[in-house]
């Protein structure tokens, strides 16, 4: 494989994404909302509006969640007052699944733009007439979706860490975030999800003529992650280190299978002769 060609494809795709507001606005707005606005409002509104933390912490769902937590995790809440308890539960546990949505959201939008978007704009044919091999074209497009998705997820995590610690420092008097379960979640699970997102989007894009068609179908993957989210909320699943590693492993396996299928579906003839279905 010739890396100068792969680099050129990555650079070109990123320039295209930069020029497409429909792609980068959701990619920036949603993470900012979740990593900055939500934690700030959760911590600052009760203190600024003089709402008693006991009132917030008395929520029955919250109490049930705490009761159902595994003992080691429950132990992590010991010694905290009710407001601290609420912050840790909300920002340390409940918000974790959002970080599973980010890599999927980023990769599906960028990969749909890169694969189905090229066909929609009829630029794919000129690309296929170049002396780049199928593997170089695929790798370039894969990296163009994967690299920003993982980087943005990690950047959002860094921002979230800063915001949560800064805003809750007056409440805790120390830095408490991230909890141990976040490390496998961010550095093991999210890259797998990003890869899974690209693989699924490439497969979906092969059957879709338009960027929106591919994006909407790929976005249904988010449903899978939402299932995990609700599992978390209802106390079914907790992202402890062990669970995180296992979930990550499952995602890596699925991602690699999807990727293998995507590689098989990516060839010049298939890209040019795909039937219109959307």
């Amino acid at each position: 494989m010739r890396w100068n060609k792969i680099g050129a494809i990555v650079k070109k795709d990123l320039l295209e994404v930069k020029g497409n507001r429909a792609v980068w606005i959701p990619v920036l707005v949603v993470p900012l909302l979740i990593s900055v606005l939500l934690p700030l409002s959760l911590i600052l509104i009760p203190t600024q509006m003089d709402i008693s933390p006991q009132v917030l912490a008395s929520d029955s769902d919250l109490r049930r969640f705490v009761e159902q937590m595994p003992a080691p995790l429950k132990a992590s809440l010991e010694g905290l007052d009710e407001f601290q308890n609420l912050i840790v539960l909300m920002l340390g546990y409940f918000f974790a699944p959002f970080f599973l949505i980010f890599p999927l959201m980023f990769t599906t939008v960028i990969a749909a733009e890169s694969f189905a978007g090229e066909r929609e704009r009829k630029t794919i044919e000129a690309l296929l007439y170049t002396p780049a091999s199928d593997q170089e074209l695929f790798t370039g497009k894969l990296l163009a979706a994967l690299f920003p998705a993982v980087s943005l997820t990690w950047f959002t995590f860094l921002l979230y860490t800063l915001v949560v610690n800064a805003a809750s420092y007056p409440v805790f008097g120390r830095l408490w975030f991230p909890l141990p379960g976040w490390y496998p979640l961010i550095f093991w699970v999210t890259p797998a999800l990003a890869l899974l997102g690209v693989g699924a989007t490439v497969l979906i894009s092969a059957r879709s003529q338009t960027f929106m068609g591919a994006y909407q179908t790929s976005a249904s993957l988010v449903v899978l992650v939402l299932a995990l989210f609700f599992g978390q909320v209802s106390g079914v699943l907790y992202f402890s280190v062990g669970v995180g590693m296992l979930v990550g492993l499952a995602f890596w396996v699925i991602a690699l299978v999807l990727l293998a299928l995507a590689v098989r579906s990516f060839n010049r003839a298939a890209l040019l002769t795909a039937k219109k279905r959307s």
Partner: peptide, 15 residues
């Protein structure tokens, strides 16, 4: 060794 002018210009319009 070939150069192909496609039926549509097939250019990247944001570039």
């Amino acid at each position: 060794k070939t150069g192909v002018l496609t039926e549509t210009p097939a250019l990247y319009e944001r570039l």
